[in-house]
C-alpha cells in the first residue's frame, strides 16, 4: 500500500463510500418494492440500511473519525443526534399515544 494520504488513496475512499451507498440504496428500494406491499416490518430493514449508509457516508465522505483530532466533531454529532432522537421519537411516541387514546386512525 502506497502513502496513505495520496490522491489515489483519497479517491479510493470516496469510491468505496459511493459503491457501498449505491448497494445499500438498491437493497432498500428492492426490499420495499418486493416485500413492502403487505409487510410493514420491511421498514426495519430499510431503517438498518439507512443507518448503514449514513455511517458509510460520514466515514468516507465527511471524514468523521474517532481519532483524537476529530473528537470535537464527533462529540458535536453524537450530542446533536441525541437531541434529534429525543425530538423525533418523543413526538412520535406522544402523538401516536394520543391518536390511539382518541381512537383516531393512524
Amino acid at each position: 500500500m502506497a502513502e496513505k494520504s495520496g490522491f489515489a488513496a483519497h479517491l479510493r475512499t470516496y469510491l468505496t463510500g459511493y459503491v457501498l451507498s449505491v448497494v445499500f440504496t438498491l437493497a432498500a428500494f428492492w426490499a420495499v418494492l418486493a416485500l413492502g406491499k403487505e409487510n410493514k416490518s420491511v421498514l426495519l430493514l430499510v431503517g438498518l440500511l439507512g443507518v448503514a449508509q449514513l455511517a458509510v457516508q460520514l466515514k468516507c465522505f465527511l471524514n468523521v473519525t474517532t481519532q483524537r483530532e476529530g473528537r470535537d466533531n464527533l462529540a458535536l454529532i453524537l450530542f446533536s443526534t441525541l437531541i434529534l432522537l429525543i425530538i423525533v421519537l418523543g413526538t412520535a411516541w406522544i402523538m401516536g399515544n394520543l391518536a390511539m387514546r382518541m381512537h383516531t386512525t393512524m
Binding site: A28, V32, G36, N39, L43, V46, G47, L54, Q57
Partner: peptide, 18 residues
Amino acid sequence: DLIWIGIFSVVYFGGWVY
C-alpha cells in the same frame, strides 16, 4: 445527501408502507 437518505427512507418508504 445524508438528509436525503432520511427522506427516501422515512417520507417515501415509510409513507408508502403505512
